[in-house]
Amino acid sequence: MTTIGRDVEPIQILLVEDSPGDVRLTQEAFKDAKVLTNMQVALDGSEAMALLKREGKYADAPRPDLILLDLNLPKKDGREVLEEIKANPSLKSIPVVVLTTSASEADILRSYRLHANCYITKPVGLEGFLEVVQSIDSFWLSVVKLPREAKS
């Protein structure tokens, strides 16, 4: 299913989320994940871009294999982050899962037009949320083959 190297190396996830409650909840949910993951957190859009571009203190940040992106973020909005990622030749191959409370048709359409890889509305209840994380785990981290790009 995966390469040998991949089995030992944890999957790098970048969570872009401004609500600490949500960050913690997502982390808790991933604790039960089948796949070994390593989660980095960016609390706003600017931080996310700095991290992805390995600017300043993020010079040694690992390249994420999957990005979980909230849309409503302070400073740089999630939509802008998505647009920048997908316009960046070296970043655009990283799958972006939009994970947001917004269920607005406009947001959904816009995200897909900006080449989001999938769009998930955060369920309100805990059980629902745990299920979503499990789905991400089983689909994006197990079923799907993620691109292996040189991690310089």
Partner: peptide, 17 residues
């Protein structure tokens, strides 16, 4: 209603947790 949902989700999720 939309913005009310955010904090409510926190309350609900952590109460359930």
């Amino acid at each position: 209603s939309h913005d009310l949902q955010e904090p409510l989700r926190m309350v609900a999720s952590y109460t359930q947790l």
